[in-house]
Design a protein around this nucleic acid. Structure first.
Lengths: 147, 147
DNA sequence: GTTTATGCAAAACATTTGCATAGTC
DNA sequence: GACTATGCAAATGTTTTGCATAAAC
């Protein structure tokens, strides 16, 4: 996982350095979306600027993307290359990538109805993931049993 | 327009004050989406904190909303109450509200396919508005004529 | 008169930049 | 050795907070 990140930097002509390896590893071991500051805290020996610069390079390389949380906060997360969306769990922060979404067709229709020349879109989907649903179900069952 | 903003604050029990009137007027005369700092610059006599606090109240009241620009910047803009989306012109910044969008049905299908319990979504649509399209067309015609 | 809002200055963050030094290729 | 990346500290930009004062109801 971390190697993939480094490889994509090298593919763009960037050097393989130990701070960048550290950042890549920190990202790879991350379970959910994260902020630049979170990575920085986990890597106290890496300079702040280096963390920010590395994240920016990884976004440009297309292996990291930004997710918009419901409250407007922007976080980073590992990414499929190319356009995609996220199913973002508001409970645990897990995020599943949505690759084959038919939204484009719909938007094309709506846009032409408004005489709007569509060039792109940004979609985030919020809710609860499978795991969080079943955890709640478990809790409910337990509570039932304890009555 | 500005009155509508103030009314919605009063409806929530907030007082009608002259700084708030100033902010409301500044917003009402704004042609496109804007940042808190832009409002502040236009109202040098109103304290910085007051501008930020007023904007926050207006968002909570539902008369102002936040738009996500393509680069990840979050701006404010006048809003229809309730859920809606924006057709955001990347050229002039104009934004048209999209009220009756059928995206929910589509998302409901996609979500259930992923065993995901849908609770909300955020969609921004980018492109060029009618005016910018016709302006370009004009320019092209002019250039043609000048050859 | 009580309560809420304001303005200011300071604090708190997040991010970027300049530059000398160190590390890669 | 030439070029790139790093670390630090400082600058920048945005937003929040504490608190005494002023305004609204």
């Amino acid at each position: 996982m971390a190697e993939e990140l480094l490889d994509s930097l090298e593919a763009q002509g960037y050097r393989s350095t130990s701070p960048r390896r550290a950042v890549a590893n920190a990202i790879a071991s991350q379970q959910r979306h994260f902020t630049a500051e979170e990575i920085r805290e986990r890597l106290p020996k890496v300079g702040r600027a280096t963390v920010y610069r590395s994240l920016k390079l990884l976004v440009e390389a297309g292996v990291l993307c930004r997710v918009l949380l419901e409250d407007g906060d922007l976080h980073y997360q590992l990414s499929h290359r190319g356009h995609h969306h996220h199913l973002l769990c508001v409970e645990c922060g897990a995020s599943e990538d949505l690759l084959g979404c038919d939204i484009e067709d719909l938007l094309r229709q709506v846009s032409s109805a408004h005489e709007f020349q569509l060039s792109g879109h940004w979609l985030e989907v919020y809710g609860r993931c499978r795991d969080c649903i079943s955890t709640q179900t478990q809790t409910e069952k337990t509570q039932m049993a304890n009555v």
